[in-house]
Write a protein that binds this DNA or RNA. Sequence first.
DNA 1: CTTTATGCAAATATTTTGCATATAG
DNA 2: CTATATGCAAAATATTTGCATAAAG
Lengths: 167, 167
Amino acid sequence: MSSGYSLGTVEVSSSPQERFADFLQSKGKRITQQRRILIDFVFKRHDHFDAEELILNLAQVPEGRKVSRPTVYRTLNELVDSGLLRRMNLRGRAIYEHDYGYPQHDHLHCTMCDKLIEFQSSELSDLLRAVAAEYDFRDTGHRLIISGICSACSATRHRRQTPLDLV
Amino acid sequence: MSSGYSLGTVEVSSSPQERFADFLQSKGKRITQQRRILIDFVFKRHDHFDAEELILNLAQVPEGRKVSRPTVYRTLNELVDSGLLRRMNLRGRAIYEHDYGYPQHDHLHCTMCDKLIEFQSSELSDLLRAVAAEYDFRDTGHRLIISGICSACSATRHRRQTPLDLV
DNA sequence: CTTTATGCAAATATTTTGCATATAG
DNA sequence: CTATATGCAAAATATTTGCATAAAG
């Protein structure tokens, strides 16, 4: 076993905890009990989640009850700034996912069951890079969500009401 | 001049007004003064806009003042449902654009000046279709936004504060 | 006339903020 | 000790909804 932090598929040089600590230090911010609780929570249990889910999960353990709602929101912003989390918008609210030690990927979003399926495509990255270049655009990232109906939902014909907005 | 409704680049068989009327009829909804005002407004002046902008613009003419805020929101939803408008999410709020007689396209979003640049790529469409197929996913559309700094902003080094969320 | 739409005010949902107190360094 | 963080309550933002009245068909 290496000294690296294992993510199952990827091995990186430091844990999210360490990276967050570095980020905070570099900004003159403090490593508080709440921030420690939050980063542990976020990197232990969740894949895709929103603020409300996180808050509900926190409420289920004594440790978690030490963190207030505003602090959750404030810290989620810091985690995004630090590059540890990636934020996207689904049905009008922010959804977060790990963005550390994770390969770049995009999503298929099932509008029936709300499931997110990740996929990777280097062809896609190349294509987007080329598009940006064509417009002299300094590309700092992208969000792509393909909406539709996943195979499971296609089979079961479960209906869902709100088509509403994607992405 | 043909009997078609001209959009500058594209020529389509009926006007947005007609299409909206058809949509409303098909749903047993009524063609009201407010809906008429709104569709005229939306298809005369705007390209990318949000609800607030539209409401401010409406407030500037007597005609527009006949339409209340809730009706604007309700009608925007109908316009999206009818396929006349496309909705996306930028910095947490809904942005609308014409989606009728318009070729499918995606966007580059400058996070400095907030400008949206449209681009088209058939390669991209093909690629996304292939991805969806690979997952037995019934693709009903996608949203793609490449974030970054446009050439103008790269030149002028105008700074902007909030990096915040994309898409 | 009957049903759908509108406007108003209020509600909802999500996220942010001011300020007094607590705590990290 | 001093500056930053937290919690609380409240504000801000964006959008939706209940209900009485107005208007379309």
